[in-house]
């Protein structure tokens, strides 16, 4: 690996200043589980690595049943699934957090890092989109908010401007009768890159028989994670039944623009999006009804 200097600012202001002074010479590190592998392979090396894990806001996990969840960008995955309140409130998020890498990776990797890494296969991104996550971004010009679905712009590229970094992700408070689920398809049972992944969240009416709203997002079927807006919107106001779910899964399939590569073919991936959309919707419905 090429040499670099290691900087660990302890406040947002300090981080902003550090990044401003280093310009494109700096690379931001959270858990490092993707970044160190990339740098070791000679990709994305930089003279300065800025570790943001010492900044309190980046480690924040604050949940309020009325305000929702603020999840610091450097919070490692295990803190999500080991927190019962959180995993009860956002089971879909727990699904994703508990299948990124193995337990060792989950001890370091963060949802924020997963989003910024902007891999098409990023396992947490579809569910964060489905849950309506908003990125809180800090930079020299202050802070700004951006919906998660707008964060990934190309494989490995995110919407952060030079000098900006992701502070946290805000999730709206879970609505009554809502549920969510993330599933990915991999040939093994762990330690794999999604061939296809789907995150779905639904809100049902009080009877549990009709959709109020739904959001569906997809992984590994386009250069970036895909927000399949039409697929989710198609369910709003519709009864919960096989036909409406099938229709939504077909819309999700048409939102997918996969390629054939060593992990899967276009046909396989499109097919899997259909299967996974159905399965995640059914799981989300079950959770909504049980909630």
């Amino acid at each position: 690996m090429e040499p670099f200097d290691f900087l660990s600012p302890s406040s947002i202001d300090e981080a902003v200043q550090t990044l401003a002074s280093k310009g494109n010479q700096a690379r931001i590190m959270a858990g490092g589980t993707d970044m160190l592998v990339q740098m070791r392979a000679g990709r994305g090396t930089a003279p300065f690595v800025v570790d943001i894990k010492d900044i309190p806001e980046l480690n924040e996990v604050s949940y309020d049943a009325s305000k929702g969840l603020t999840l610091g960008a450097a919070v490692p995955c295990y803190r999500i699934y080991e927190d019962k309140t959180l995993s009860d409130a956002y089971p879909g998020l727990m699904d994703a957090a508990s299948l990124i890498g193995g337990i060792q990776i989950q001890g370091r990797a963060s949802i924020g890092g997963n989003i910024c890494n902007a891999a098409p296969s990023g396992d947490s991104i579809p569910i964060v989109i489905a849950l309506g996550g908003i990125c809180n971004i800090a930079g020299a010009n202050g802070t700004r908010q951006l919906p998660v679905e707008e964060m990934c712009t190309a494989p490995g590229r995110n919407a952060l401007e030079e000098g900006e970094f992701l502070v946290s992700i805000h999730f709206p408070a879970p609505q009554a009768n809502s549920g969510a689920n993330y599933l990915r398809f991999i040939p093994r049972n762990e330690m794999d890159i999604a061939v296809a992944g789907v995150g779905s969240s639904v809100q049902l009416d009080a009877s549990g028989q009709n959709f109020v709203s739904a959001r569906i997002a997809l992984a590994s079927v386009a250069p970036t994670p895909v927000f399949a807006k039409e697929a989710g919107d198609s369910l709003a106001g519709k009864p919960v039944n096989e036909d409406t779910i099938q229709a939504a899964s077909e819309l999700a399939q048409s939102a997918a623009k996969p390629i054939s590569d060593m992990r899967g073919t276009v046909r396989q991936r499109t097919h899997l999006i259909g299967v996974l959309t159905r399965r995640t919707l059914n799981n989300a419905i079950e959770r909504a009804r049980g909630a």
């Binding site: 490092g32 160190l36 570790d51 060792q104």
Partner: peptide
């Protein structure tokens, strides 16, 4: 050396981590 085999697992502050994916300075 890329976090996929676990041979370098150690316990850091009570959590298991791959030490190949932790910098010494950390």
């Amino acid at each position: 050396n890329d976090g996929n085999c676990g041979a370098c697992t150690l316990i850091m502050d009570g959590r298991i981590v791959n030490s190949c994916l932790v910098l010494g300075v950390e």
